[in-house]
Design a protein around this nucleic acid. Structure first.
Length: 179
DNA sequence: ACAACGATCAACT
DNA sequence: GTTGATCGTTGTC
């Protein structure tokens, strides 16, 4: 997960204030904010603050537990559809635990695109939703690191340790040194 | 109307 | 470690 909060956060989509795209960030917490980056990849965010306080966490990675075959299929389908020229080398299939180890890969694995923006992730009837962890499941150890892939190098906004990984988790996104 | 660029990924050197 | 793919959003003119 990676946190973005407020209009002062120069790395956040809310830095321009309220726009058509980032409207869900200003909406109620627990809803999805999905956007397209680099013309190719969808990114799933979860709104985290009350109405009119723009903030969200980007889901950078998930651990694939069920439907791995579906994840593999939708990922390669999306890759093929969005690549003009075929690679010279055969495409490598990633290890199962890395099927959703990046924000664009999470969306690809779950088949999420921008049409999902705004859905209520706390609605038990939603096909895409958050659920309570089982009582017998202890919370994992979490490590905080700087955020990844944001511009404004040298500003305080690149320094904040607002990226959170489950310590040592093999499905985490980003460089191995930051897991 | 237009130009720049981005919360990325995978291929390539 | 570097770079191409690809297009909606945003700021500027």
């Amino acid at each position: 997960m990676e946190a973005y909060i407020g209009t002062d956060d120069r790395a956040s989509h809310a830095r321009f204030g309220r726009t058509d795209r980032n409207r869900p960030m200003y909406g109620p917490p627990g809803h999805a904010y999905v956007y397209l980056v680099y013309g190719m990849y969808d990114c799933l965010n979860i709104v985290t603050e009350p109405v009119d306080h723009p903030a969200a966490v980007l889901v950078r990675a998930t651990e694939p537990l069920e439907g791995l075959d579906v994840m593999r299929a939708s990922r390669s389908a999306l890759r093929a559809a969005r690549r003009k020229t075929a690679p010279r080398t055969a495409l490598r299939t990633p290890p199962d635990h890395r099927l959703a180890s990046g924000p664009g890969l999470v969306a690809a694995a779950f088949g999420i695109d921008v049409t999902w923006t705004g859905v209520d992730l706390c609605d038990p009837a939603s096909p895409l939703r958050l659920e309570e962890a089982p009582d017998d499941e202890p919370p994992p150890a979490v490590r905080a690191t700087p955020r990844i892939g944001i511009a404004y190098a040298g500003t305080p906004w690149t320094e904040h340790a607002w990226r959170f990984v489950i310590t040592g988790h093999p499905s985490a996104s980003g460089p191995a040194s930051l897991r």
